[in-house]
């Protein structure tokens, strides 16, 4: 019991999230019971969450560094559009799977190359031209969307090879969805980078005080370049997963994922002020958000917008609670110096 108490005291934020998750699970169990605890329902969830979870993971790096990236999804869409156009143009009927796979890989390569370009542009704007990150990336978001729209006249680009969608929808061994595998790979990379390398160490320090990091001999420019690149690449991978779900690419697919990624991170206590954010909390947050989205679908009379209601509400409540957590933390007792008193 005292162990739990200690854990709660030391990990107030994590405790709030665990409490929230238990509450959500309890609520759906009470209301839907066996319909909620069905294996296929949970398998379905694993097919859905990776697309935005990848985007959120990418954004996490940026938030920890004290920056912001609103351009992620639309940059990913532009890359995906080029990729799908390439695949559609080169895959012909009756082609061998091996050949198709080669073309798919080149397509993915194109999308990732665009991600690199986009990430570098964000970095240059923010680092060398000193544009505030929110503004720079909102502007780039509009530019990428504009390019996509001009290229596709606003239509969805169809012609994703069947192999691509089939693989994207496969459950390995009957239960492990391919998107989950991709997400897990990114997760492992993220955990490794943040917890076991100097990159993570430096990232948190830069997010806390960029100037002090620079004065300590940290290559701040290089770190930020890597951060924006990671954000763009992770998000593009998320969009590529989405392409397999949709069977096409479009200028404004997944536009709401920008908000959802921010929601997930803020819910997890990872805010764009920088220097904060724990991967375990972010995982908890992703799971909670997906369970709510799926749970809502069990109610025939509730449409999907109910999840907006709950998420928005949750975001506000968590934000308010986070200020209270801070207030309740024990105040640092002022050290009273021992010195002889010599009143005149």
């Amino acid at each position: 019991m005292t162990k739990i108490k200690n854990f709660v005291r030391n990990n107030q934020y994590t405790s709030i999230l665990v409490g929230l998750l238990i509450a959500v699970l309890a609520l759906f169990s009470a209301l839907k019971g066996s319909a909620f605890w069905r294996i296929d329902l949970w398998k379905g969830m694993t097919m859905q969450f990776p697309e935005y979870a990848c985007i959120a993971l990418g954004l996490m790096f940026v938030f920890i560094s004290g920056h912001h990236d609103m351009s992620q999804v639309l940059l990913g869409n532009f890359g995906a559009i080029l990729a799908v156009q390439y695949m559609a143009a080169n895959v012909t009927e009756g082609m061998a799977n091996g050949q198709v796979a080669g073309i798919i890989f080149i397509g993915i390569g194109i999308a990732l190359a665009i991600a690199v370009v986009g990430g570098l542009i964000n970095f240059l704007l923010v680092s060398y031209l000193n544009v505030p990150p929110v503004m720079a990336t909102i502007a780039m978001q509009m530019v990428w969307k504009g390019l996509s729209t001009a290229l596709t006249k606003g239509y969805a680009v169809k012609g994703v090879p069947a192999l691509y969608t089939t693989v994207g929808h496969t459950y390995i061994g009957g239960f492990l969805a391919v998107p989950v595998v991709i997400f897990l790979v990114l997760l492992v990379i993220a955990i490794f980078l943040l917890k076991f390398t100097t990159f993570g160490e430096k990232l948190y320090m830069i997010g806390t005080n960029k100037k002090a990091a620079k004065f300590s001999g940290i290559n701040v420019h290089g770190m930020l370049a890597a951060t924006y690149l990671l954000s763009a690449i992770f998000a593009t991978i998320g969009v590529l997963i989405m392409v397999s779900t949709m069977g096409s690419a479009k200028a404004d697919y997944g536009i709401s994922y920008t908000t959802r990624a921010i929601l997930i991170l803020v819910l997890a206590g990872c805010i764009p002020d920088g220097g904060q954010g724990k991967i375990s909390n972010i995982l908890l947050s992703i799971v909670t958000v997906q369970i709510i989205a799926t749970g809502i679908n069990l109610f025939a009379n509730l449409n999907t917008y109910y999840s907006s209601l709950i998420w928005g509400g949750m975001l506000i409540v968590v934000l308010i609670m986070s200020t209270q957590v801070g207030n309740r933390a024990p105040k640092k007792a002022k050290k009273v110096k021992k010195a002889p008193q010599n009143a005149a």
Binding site: V134, T259, I262, L263, V266, I271, P272, D273, L302, N303, T304, Y305, Y306, S307, S308, L309, I310, W311, G312, G313, L315, I316, L319, I320, T323
Partner: peptide, 26 residues
Amino acid sequence: IISNFKLNTMLVTLGTQTFFTGVSMG
């Protein structure tokens, strides 16, 4: 919310935006 709690207004209004959309369409 904004006047009572010292919070990032962008995050608060992102939350209320999502919430209001949920109220209206959900």
